[in-house]
Amino acid sequence: MKLTNLTALNEARAAGKSVLLFSDVERGAETLTIDGEGSGDIEITTALKEAGEKAHNEDRGRLVEIDNKRIFIQVFNPARRIVIVGAVHIAQPLVPMARLAGYAVTIVDPRGAWATPERFPDIEIDRRWPDEALEALEPDSRTAIVTLTHDPKLDDPALTVALRSDAFYIGALGGKKTAGKRVARLTEAGFGPADFARIRGPVGLDIGAISPAEIAVSIVGQITETLHRPERAAA
């Protein structure tokens, strides 16, 4: 590998870009594509481009045999994100757990009394109203959104933006009664059954979690399941 390519790769990763590295494992040639723009010694043919897109979408590298070459495709996607709405007690253990699982974590809470540095020493909190914050954060198919405030005037605006996004996971704290009222409010806002089916509530896997840390485990577990076993998560 050329040092110039490695340097370009490292800079692109640091800038949060999506990178693919194609390496000819027999000849040593390589091509780097950064956000789809390619440069290098391997010509990106249609077949190679398709294989690259598949690897990118599945977030998994692979060795392919294309055009009589053995090409190793490596995927460097930016970290998946978890946006937590509500700087509540559950969020405190959830932040380090989510980070350990590889996520970039954002907390949104406009309420100053909750969002204090004492409670959240190593993360900056987005103090905007949840709909404004979420719109600015542009949730995509690599984003999970968890609402924990238990307060409709904060959770609802967050869910409204979440449901209009491609977020791969939407979880909302609250039992059946809360969920029922939420459905009524969101129906009035124009959402339907297909939207409600996307909201995981009560949030987290059913593992009998009681303490905030246990609930955080159940949430990280459910997000993991949605990511890797979507068919089971939907059942």
């Binding site: 970290a79 994100r81 980070r99 590889g102 996520y103 970039a104 974590v105 954002t106 190593d122 993360i123 900056e124 909190i125 987005d126 954060l137």
Partner: peptide
């Protein structure tokens, strides 16, 4: 705000 710490160990 999204944290920018190195996530990849």
């Amino acid at each position: 705000m999204t944290d920018t710490q190195m996530l990849d160990h």
